[in-house]
Design a protein around this nucleic acid. Structure first.
Length: 244
DNA sequence: AATCACTACAACCGCAAGCGA
DNA sequence: ATCGCTTGCGGTTGTAGTGAT
């Protein structure tokens, strides 16, 4: 039987208070990110270590960007999701100042719906004929250089999808990358014809992320870590154009 | 003004990987 | 090799805020 991560009856749950935040910030400033399990007691917090870690990583860390996602960031998330599936921490690692939780939330609340609205199955990034067709079916644009971000500015069409979103949510989790979905040897481009997926990736700044694990994963994924962040940021022409 | 429906996002939970003993 | 502990990840839930009716 697994031991609970903390003594539940002695810990606070729910939203963090300003005082709790301050205690955590003060402690980590003084001692750094150490053993999360012992941190709460040492910092005088009635929280479990997991909760402290999450609060710090997702909310209190000083290098967090916060605020709206830029179009470049949206496009990058979509590309990376097509490539990596729901590996949010890896995706977030390519977005300086963004957390996996933030990226995941943004995907589920914005980007997923956006793709659905374009008639793209967000699980596999392929055109789904049972879904609403995209609104921009101008053949001249079908090699579209328009970014997905700019395509769906009009959110009114999303209403139907929104109500469907919750019902769909239990189907989300099998989102695999196209790499996994493809038959062995079949290039990603066979279903993402115009997706100029440069798989080269750079390391995020070591100050902001758990680098070592990312490095390991990148090795497993054969991702070249030596190239700059810029090389991953999609050109507008490289934006997902999934219609054939 | 009250109620309902929906969104956005913070936070929690369970699981599995990683690591040292 | 295995066991137990810690950490990190991804899925899910809870709820405050907002707009529609």
């Amino acid at each position: 039987m697994r031991k609970p991560c903390c003594d539940k009856q002695d810990t606070n749950k729910g939203a963090w208070s300003k005082q709790e935040d301050q205690k955590l910030i003060d402690y980590i400033r003084k001692h750094g990110e150490g053993c999360w399990r012992t941190l709460p007691q040492a910092a005088g917090l009635l929280r479990c270590g997991k909760s402290c870690r999450l609060r710090w990583i997702n909310y209190l860390r000083p290098d967090l960007k916060r605020g709206n996602f830029a179009e470049d960031e949206e496009d990058l998330i979509i590309k990376l999701h097509a490539l990596l599936g729901n590996r949010w921490s890896l995706i977030a690692g390519r977005l300086p100042g963004r957390t996996d939780n933030e990226v995941k939330n943004y995907w589920n609340s914005h980007l997923r719906r956006k793709l659905l609205n374009m008639g793209i199955d967000p699980n596999n990034h392929r055109l789904n004929h049972s879904l609403p067709r995209p609104v921009h079916q101008n053949p001249e644009n079908s090699t579209s250089t328009a970014s997905t971000s700019s395509l769906m500015k009009n959110d009114t069409n999303n209403q139907l999808v929104r109500s469907q979103q919750r019902r769909d949510n239990d189907q989300v989790s099998d989102a695999g990358s196209c790499l996994e979905d493809e038959a062995p040897g079949a290039p990603c481009g066979s279903t993402l014809p115009d997706l100029n997926l440069d798989l080269s990736m750079s390391f995020p700044s070591s100050s902001s992320l758990g680098i070592n694990k990312d490095e390991d994963k990148e090795k497993k994924l054969n991702i070249d870590p030596n190239l700059s962040q810029q090389e991953l940021v999609p050109s507008s022409a490289a934006t997902l154009v999934l219609f054939q």
